[in-house]
Computed example of a mutant assay.
Amino acid sequence: MHWNSIATALALSASGADALLRFSCSQLVLDRLDPLVNPGSAPAPHLHQIVGGNAFNITMDPAKPPPTQATCTTCTFADDFSNYWTAVLYFQAKNGSYKRVPLKPNSGFEQAMGGMTIYYTPYIGTKQSVTAFKPGFRMLIGQQGYRTKEEAQRFRQLTYTCLQTIMTRTGETLDMPKSPCPAGIMTNVRFPTCWDGKNLDSPDHTSHVAYPSSGTFENNGPCPATHPVKIPQLFYEVIWDTTKFNDKSLWPASGQPFVWSQGDATGFGNHGDYVFGWKDDALQKAMDTNCNINCPALKTQSIAVGNKCANKARVHEDIDGWLTELPGFSSGDHKEGMRIRK
């Protein structure tokens, strides 16, 4: 796999890391499914954008790991059949109608069909060993119902970047940008980096993992005694092409017009989900060999091949026209924190 110098510089400046994987995963499907939070529900309450292996389904049995079920992946590391997903961003116009915001490829991955950029970082600065995720492992970060800064600060590494150019990597905020962003809005989804060493999941899909007990992963903060096992920092960069909505005459008088698909116009409900699905010990090999962008220890495929891997949506509904309600919502069905604009 070959990465241009711009992408390499971007990855290193974005993370400050001495070792990491950075790769593209094209869009697999946009669908109202969530096998982690709402297994068995079709439809789930709100729309998601999903990347990774095509074993993604209404229900995903932890006893049947994705590599044993998938036949392809949208990711450039061909042994990665994991699934990564987030909510979907919508623009709400002055008249109250909604339009889905398309995804935009990241620098170095211009041929990708939307999707997201995935990072796995084993360490920052000081070389150390990390334990790769195990078959059946899954987790989420963030809470879809959060609507205040105080709530969002629990997940201090869920942020937004108002892109001045595709290379912008400064000025992260916990809430949605309030002004038009010249190159789009990037959501940054960084997962906890400490594991209890026992549970592959937990009832809230969060309690089995934790942040460092002091400091952060980036400054080598120690893991708490309750979660002593260091795991890689999993990090999503998702770029939303908000540029076609930058005409402020279309914006509501109340200001910021972007709304997550679960009905959050504050941005504090930013969240991401993960189901591990690397084949065999491929991820552990990559972490042990301290791959830096390129990883000769891993099998790769072209972005064009990844683009061909796709699932058909299970929930049949209009998600792309000008909508009077978000998918999954109906009149009077808005949750607290949903902005109703007239």
Rank of each mutant, 00 (worst) to 15 (best):
I118Q: 04
N270H: 12
G184N: 04
G136K: 09
G197C: 09
Q92R: 12
L323Y: 00
Q144D: 15
E218P: 01
I185Q: 07
T117K: 05
P135D: 10
C223D: 01
G215L: 04
T242M: 01
E325W: 08
M116S: 08
S41D: 13
S26W: 11
K230T: 11
L200K: 14
S82E: 01
W3V: 14
G215I: 03
P102C: 05
L47H: 06
R154A: 11
G115N: 02
L89G: 06
C295H: 01
H46G: 06
T8Y: 13
P105T: 03
P35T: 07
W251I: 05
P45C: 02
Q233E: 13
G145F: 13
Q157R: 15
W3E: 15
P222R: 01
F235H: 15
W260V: 02
T161V: 13
P66F: 07
D333I: 08
L10E: 14
W260L: 14
Q143F: 06
C194S: 10
W251S: 06
K104L: 08
G108D: 07
C25W: 12
M113R: 15
D280L: 11
A132T: 06
P62E: 13
Q128K: 15
V305S: 12
R138C: 11
V189P: 03
S179G: 08
L158I: 07
P327I: 02
D79L: 11
T168Q: 04
V315I: 12
R22K: 13
F217K: 00
V189A: 10
K285E: 13
E317G: 05
A282T: 12
Y160S: 00
G142L: 00
R32C: 05
F217I: 00
T266C: 00
Q301T: 02
F191E: 00
A70H: 09
Q144E: 15
A265E: 11
V209E: 08
Q144M: 13
N311G: 08
S179V: 12
P224A: 04
P105V: 02
A313K: 14
D196V: 10
F137L: 05
T121E: 11
N83Y: 04
A310Q: 14
K308A: 15
H46V: 04
N292L: 14
